[in-house]
């Protein structure tokens, strides 16, 4: 405390220096003199000196950013395919996929689009289904007949806990719902996206309808304002791809128009790309702009 008093005293003396008297310019630089840096006027706040400005707040947006697309070149489906097939030449056609990314004008908060579609030409055919239903019931036999790879209740839970998951889709019959809740498998199944829920329509009382919907059905959901979906294999003809894209877009438009009033959504951009190719913004037309090019030319063996 004493040191502070001394300091204040010296400051007071400095501030009392009478004007008119010649001031001897000190040999030390000005910024080292305490009076030059230390504030002579004290505020009531007692903070003294430079108060820290609050960090500039970053502007936040409620909606995902959408760009002005007037400058962006857009392609017809066949034109885009011509380029994509050039990028994918010499690749195994079963491996390379055509992908569609649909940008949506939407708020960052609120419900997201989530649905399932059965494309006219399925892209992947490796759906393996597991069914949870009471053991030794007619349901179990029905599920096996429908082609499920794993059926059961407690035995299935045991194998899941042991890490044996031979399926990539899991559905649950209403009768086994209570058992599933008690089993507490959410930790294992949740991260894999396998946990049955009414939201994903994987808790059902009609096994047959659900299994048939799941086989050859692909799920899509909106993430960060974009819905992505594989819509074709490299070997598809332009017509097949067009059918797939059309049926997908029809369903997606329905989803968009069904969106909650408080969280309106709108279609912004449709981009087609392939596994190794760039993304082409589609303009919605099918035919190539080059008169020499026919859609039939784009279905040769890759």
């Amino acid at each position: 405390m004493a040191s502070l008093n001394q300091c204040l005293a010296s400051l007071a003396r400095l501030s009392l220096s009478t004007p008119g008297r010649p001031i001897i310019t000190p040999a030390i630089p000005k910024f080292l003199i305490p009076s030059a840096t230390a504030p002579l006027v004290r505020h009531a706040s007692g903070g003294g000196g430079m108060r820290k400005r609050p960090a500039k707040k970053k502007k936040t947006y409620k909606t995902y950013k959408c760009w002005d697309l007037s400058e962006v070149e857009q392609f017809s489906l066949c034109d885009a395919l011509r380029y994509l097939r050039a990028f994918e030449v010499g690749r195994p056609p079963a491996v390379v996929k055509y992908e569609l990314a649909v940008k949506i004008r939407t708020q960052k908060s609120g419900p997201v689009i989530r649905n399932r579609i059965r494309l006219p030409f399925p892209v992947k055919t490796d759906t393996r289904i597991g069914v949870i239903c009471p053991e030794d019931s007619p349901l179990m036999i029905e599920a096996q007949q429908l082609g499920a790879v794993a059926v059961g209740q407690e035995s299935l839970f045991e194998s899941i806990r042991a890490g044996q998951i031979p399926f990539n889709k899991l559905i649950c019959h209403v009768d086994s719902l209570e058992a599933l809740r008690k089993a507490g498998l959410g930790r294992i199944l949740g991260p894999k996206g396998l946990m049955p829920s009414t939201k994903t329509k994987t808790i059902t009382s009609d096994l047959k309808a659900t299994v048939q919907e799941l086989i050859g059905a692909d799920e899509y959901r909106e993430r960060d304002g974009v819905v992505r979906m594989a819509v074709g294999q490299l070997g598809f003809t332009p017509q097949m791809l067009s059918d797939n894209i059309k049926s997908f877009m029809e369903l997606l438009k329905q989803d968009i128009s069904n969106a909650d009033e408080n969280h309106p959504k709108a279609l912004d951009e449709v981009v087609l790309s392939s596994t190794n190719g760039p993304g082409f913004s589609l303009n919605g037309s099918f035919h190539p702009t080059d008169p020499k090019l026919k859609p039939e030319h784009l279905q040769s063996v890759m």
């Binding site: 011509r82 380029y83 097939r85 050039a86 990028f87 030449v89 010499g90 690749r91 090019l293 039939e296 030319h297 784009l298 040769s300 063996v301 890759m302």
Partner: peptide, 22 residues
């Protein structure tokens, strides 16, 4: 050749099957 030239050939001759066996 496959990386550089073949995509260009494929672009200009989309109807010709070009198969690569690696």
């Amino acid at each position: 050749f496959w990386r550089d030239a073949l995509p260009r050939l494929k672009y200009w001759n989309p109807a010709v099957p070009m198969v690569v066996n690696r």
